[in-house]
Design a protein around this nucleic acid. Structure first.
Lengths: 340, 340
DNA sequence: CTGTTAGCGCATTCAT
DNA sequence: ATGAATGCGCTAACAG
């Protein structure tokens, strides 16, 4: 292994390879890229390439081909948050795998949601990536402008602001929360609170709506709603406030498993038994669902499939110049365990 | 927000902006990039840019400037592993922050360590990034070739294969394991096993060496060594085997907190009390160290500082064309808790 | 302060 | 099968 301290701009060019191989630049280009070329030419060019340690310049290649064969993955969260949230990990892994299969190089754009321009601005340019997948999009003019201004084909994971004009995929959050709430009603719960997530996320809005739907369906008045909780720690505080303001509730529909985990802490601190005093549901069905005690009744989401659907949308557009049918809305499923 | 389904290659060019603004292309370029230009020119060009929705083509710009102002972060792990390891999360976050401060856009290269070429091959090109930071490097010819062949300035986090010729930063792993082992010896332990990490990682080699060092220093024969454990689950199995083969040990120096967590599971299953029967140390001092029971005595590593040092090395080279002094080896520190 | 002229390094016609 | 010519879209001298 010998990484020479190559000065920034320098490096052998295709011209030098061609000269050393005794052919023209275009012939060298063909030989290297699998175009038409005689065996001995391919041989000579390959030898020259190896001797010079030639590596094609991406900017030049992308410019000439008018295509980059790479795509950006934009998750509107800080790097720390991305890494702490299993949802993002699953999405990213599945996206990367699918794009690799399609011959596309995924670039994970690290960004500061509060300073988007300087942190992801450079990546969202035509000529750098062929398209973009956006996850965890939250209403934010700067980020919108960035996405809008890029002019790049973009797919959203989760319903975007103008769902009729922007390609997206989603899971049926509304139905999921509906199922969980109905399940609680069927088990006799009558004062079901909702510990909702961020209202800036479409999933937060939809899950709340599903919780309302089930109540309307049953002709029962919904319990109190308290939103804004995102992580376990803040959910604990929110749950504590909820219990203080509404001590008579007998169930909680939590935004996610992580939020439910926070609620568990608050309930335990308040001496309320789960599910005897208060039943509890989450959403996600990730590892935490079975790591907490009691194990969570939760709404499972097909996250890898969701990501793959998003990738397929973009891949389809890139290959055919036209968007495949969208939105794809994937089904959610109720997993009953011990917390209800 | 109006993301038109722009066909892949199309988009307004600087020429069109210049024409609309009634100036030459170079003047438009200057006006847009903060070069010399009269106020009314800037005004006119800006208006034209907005009207056309012009976004510069990155490939063309990078090619002309012979600089990309972006850097690649390569972590030699699968995306799933990257996301599950707090070390990588900390490294990535700190690197991104430091690069942003320096006006560089970090690109996290997602890769499959077993299929490196198709997964990161495209990103490691001159003309696409100005430099590379590699973390968790493990001996692997394909990856080496990729890095070697790119001709890009590269910094390693963790001692690389040829430490005398490759810029790198590291923590003093050897000293850290030495401290932990000496601590155990001082508390009267005499049969101290080492549950080492992957031998392909320099940290694995170094921590084992530190464990040996402390024994040599004390003139005491080292206990058994068992390596290869990386995650908690496999560490549990390894620890079980260790206990079966060497039931008389009275302490374990684990490769990391995660490995120590696995050891705790095995010890508990075997009915061995910690630290009464067997004392235990980890390395990392991340959250798990205080989440497990008993809380871990561990070797703390300054991971964010480590990442920052790596970034500074690359930034220094990029700015001055010469490498700053390296290696930077950061100190480790013993944190004594309840497991010893 | 502005326009003109040259490239940046490569892919891709089009002839041959 | 090969070479010459052209252009991708932009920045950076260089004159004026």
């Amino acid at each position: 292994m010998s990484l020479e301290a190559s000065s920034v701009g320098r490096g052998p060019t295709l011209d030098e390879v061609a000269r050393l191989a005794g052919v023209s630049r275009s012939t060298a280009s063909r030989a290297l890229n699998g175009g038409v070329a005689s065996p001995q030419t391919v041989e000579a060019v390959e030898r020259a390439r190896a001797e010079l340690g030639f590596v094609p310049n991406r900017a030049a290649r992308d410019l000439a081909r008018r295509r980059t064969d790479s795509v950006a993955i934009v998750i509107q969260e800080t790097p720390a948050a991305i890494f702490h949230n299993p949802f993002h990990a699953l999405v990213t892994t599945a996206l990367a795998t699918r794009f690799w299969e399609a011959g596309l190089q995924p670039l994970l754009a690290l960004m500061d949601p509060f300073e988007p321009e300087p942190t992801v601005g450079r990546i969202l340019h035509r000529g750098h990536v062929d398209g973009v997948v956006v996850s965890a999009f939250q209403e934010s003019p700067p980020v919108e402008n960035l996405l809008t201004g890029s002019g790049l084909p973009t797919v959203f994971i989760g319903r975007p602001p103008r769902p009729d004009s922007l390609p997206y995929v989603d899971v049926d959050n509304r139905r999921g929360a509906h199922l969980a709430t109905r399940h609680l009603l069927e088990r006799g719960r009558r004062r079901i609170a909702c510990l909702g997530g961020p209202a800036t996320l479409s999933s937060g809005v939809d899950r709340r709506q599903g919780w309302l739907d089930a109540h309307h369906e049953a002709g029962i008045a919904p319990g109190p709603y308290l939103g804004g909780a995102a992580d376990t720690a803040s959910a604990r505080d929110q749950a504590q406030r909820l219990l203080r303001q509404h001590p008579a509730i007998d169930a909680i529909v939590a935004y996610s498993d992580a939020v439910a985990a926070g609620a568990i802490q608050a309930l335990r601190a308040a001496g309320r038994a789960i599910p005897d005093d208060i039943a509890l549901t989450g959403v996600d069905n990730f590892a935490t669902a079975t790591e907490v005690c009691p194990n969570l009744t939760t709404v499972a989401q097909p996250v890898p499939e969701l990501a793959r659907a998003a990738a397929d949308l973009l891949i389809g557009y890139l290959q055919n110049g036209a968007w495949p049918a969208w939105p794809r809305i994937l089904a959610t499923e109720l997993i009953v365990r011990d917390s209800t």
